[in-house]
Amino acid sequence: MADYSSLTVVQLKDLLTKRNLSVGGLKNELVQRLIKDDEESKGESEVSP
């Protein structure tokens, strides 16, 4: 898992935009949104054959 907390808000928003996720909120919220997306993506890849 990436260390999103070391990134700037601009970098976080860029990552969120690329994933089609909301870019609104405080830095901590942006980090949590990326972590949640990582976990959901990981779960999907494990279920797929």
Rank of each mutant, 00 (worst) to 15 (best):
G43H: 09
T17N: 12
Y4Q: 00
T17P: 00
N28R: 11
D14A: 11
R19K: 04
K36C: 08
Y4A: 00
V47H: 06
S45R: 12
S45E: 13
M1V: 03
A2I: 15
N20K: 05
E29G: 03
K18C: 06
R33A: 06
L34K: 02
Q11I: 02
V23P: 11
N28G: 12
V9T: 11
L12Y: 01
V31L: 07
V47R: 08
N20Q: 09
V10S: 14
L21T: 02
D37H: 07
K27F: 01
G24T: 14
T17C: 11
S48Q: 08
S6H: 08
E29C: 01
V10Q: 15
K42P: 07
R19W: 00
G24Q: 13
S22M: 13
E40D: 14
L12N: 04
S41C: 12
D3H: 08
L16G: 02
I35S: 07
V31I: 08
D14C: 06
T17F: 14
L15N: 04
E44V: 11
R19Y: 00
V47K: 13
E46T: 09
Q11W: 01
T8M: 04
D38A: 02
K42F: 11
Q32Y: 05
N20W: 02
S6T: 07
E40W: 09
E46M: 12
L34P: 02
A2L: 15
Q11D: 08
K42M: 11
L12W: 00
P49W: 00
A2E: 15
L30T: 04
K13L: 05
E46A: 12
E40V: 11
L21H: 03
S48E: 15
V9P: 09
D3P: 09
E44Y: 10
V47Y: 13
A2R: 13
K13D: 03
R33M: 04
L26F: 10
G24W: 13
S6I: 06
D14H: 13
L21D: 06
K27C: 00
N28T: 11
V31N: 01
E29L: 04
N20I: 03
L12M: 04
K13S: 06
N20A: 13
L34D: 02
S22R: 06
S41L: 10
Q11N: 07
K18R: 11
D14K: 10
L26V: 14
R19V: 00
L15A: 08
E46H: 14
K13R: 10
L12G: 03
K42N: 08
A2V: 15
S45Y: 05
R19E: 01
N20H: 08
Y4C: 01
R33P: 00
D3Q: 05
K42W: 08
K36G: 06
Y4G: 00
E40C: 15
D14L: 10
K27D: 05
R19N: 01
V9Q: 07
L30P: 05
E39N: 05
Y4P: 00
D3T: 07
L16S: 03
E46Q: 06
V9E: 13
Q32G: 10
D38S: 05
S22P: 15
L12D: 04
E40M: 15
E39I: 06
E39S: 11
E29I: 02
G43K: 14
P49T: 10
Q32K: 14
Q11P: 01
L30H: 03
S22T: 04
E29A: 06
E29P: 01
S45T: 12
I35V: 12
L26Y: 11
L16I: 04
